[in-house]
């Protein structure tokens, strides 16, 4: 069967792929943020064994390729006799990946809060939870915004790896279209433009936030 693809057909299909990329990115970023918060709490909490475990968790995800993590989730869940669709494996894998990186970024922000703040609040008989809630987090959150937005760019780009386990997002759609149209230069060029449209505003926003907070901070 020979189907002629017009430029509009290519773009229309790529936009569908782009929507899946956005969906996967949002899922991974939001769930990854939630899991990352739990990892962070355990990482800086008061139980040494939990701290160690979370340090290992973070190092594991930062020291192995994202592709391996996706393969392991994909084949690991299958081992338990459950058939996982590619989108679910991709969402779980990217969520774990994101959580490890965000937890580490946020840990840096919490640790940037001067020790005196902890000591002052504990001398006011605040509990650990109260210290976190009223003293440390409000300040840490401020410096965490810019690097967090910056990392969202890595998440969007990371979703392209999900194409390898068969999830039909932007890169996978591009690969299929390139095969069908024999126009790889055009198609992959357009795919790159698609990612650029998603990522550039985020990078730019992150940079502006960084300037703003660096400029106005008192230390």
């Amino acid at each position: 069967m020979m189907t002629e693809f017009t430029l509009w057909d290519i773009i229309r299909n790529l936009i569908t792929g782009l929507e899946w990329t956005v969906g996967l990115s949002l899922t991974a970023f939001l769930l990854g943020g939630a899991v990352g918060l739990l990892v962070l709490t355990a990482r800086i909490g008061r139980f040494p064994w939990l701290q160690k475990a979370m340090k290992g968790y973070i190092e594991l995800f930062q020291g192995t390729p994202l592709l391996m993590q996706l393969f392991l989730v994909f084949f690991g869940i299958s081992l338990m006799g459950i058939d996982v669709p590619a989108w679910l494996a991709a969402a779980i894998g990217l969520t774990l990946f994101t959580s490890a990186y965000l937890a580490e970024i946020w840990r840096g922000c919490v640790e940037a809060i001067p020790k005196g703040q902890w000591e002052a609040s504990s001398s006011l008989a605040m509990s650990w939870v109260e210290q976190m809630r009223y003293v440390v987090l409000p300040q840490a959150l401020r410096i965490a915004i810019a690097p967090t937005v910056g990392f969202s760019v890595q998440v969007v780009k990371g979703t392209s790896v999900a194409s390898i386990i068969g999830f039909a997002e932007l890169t996978k759609t591009g690969g299929m279209l390139a095969n069908a149209t024999f126009k790889p230069f055009l198609v992959f060029g357009l795919v790159a433009v698609g990612y650029f449209i998603l990522c550039y505003p985020l990078s730019h926003f992150a940079m502006r936030l960084e300037r703003k907070y660096r400029g106005s901070s008192s230390h």
């Binding site: 760019v153 780009k157 990371g158 979703t159 392209s160 790896v161 194409s163 390898i164 890169t171 591009g174 690969g175 390139a178 790889p184 992959f188 795919v191 790159a192 990612y195 650029f196 990522c199 550039y200 990078s203």
Partner: peptide, 9 residues
């Protein structure tokens, strides 16, 4: 602002 995989392809 583009993924490595797409650059490679």
């Amino acid at each position: 602002n583009t993924p490595f995989l797409v650059q490679l392809f």
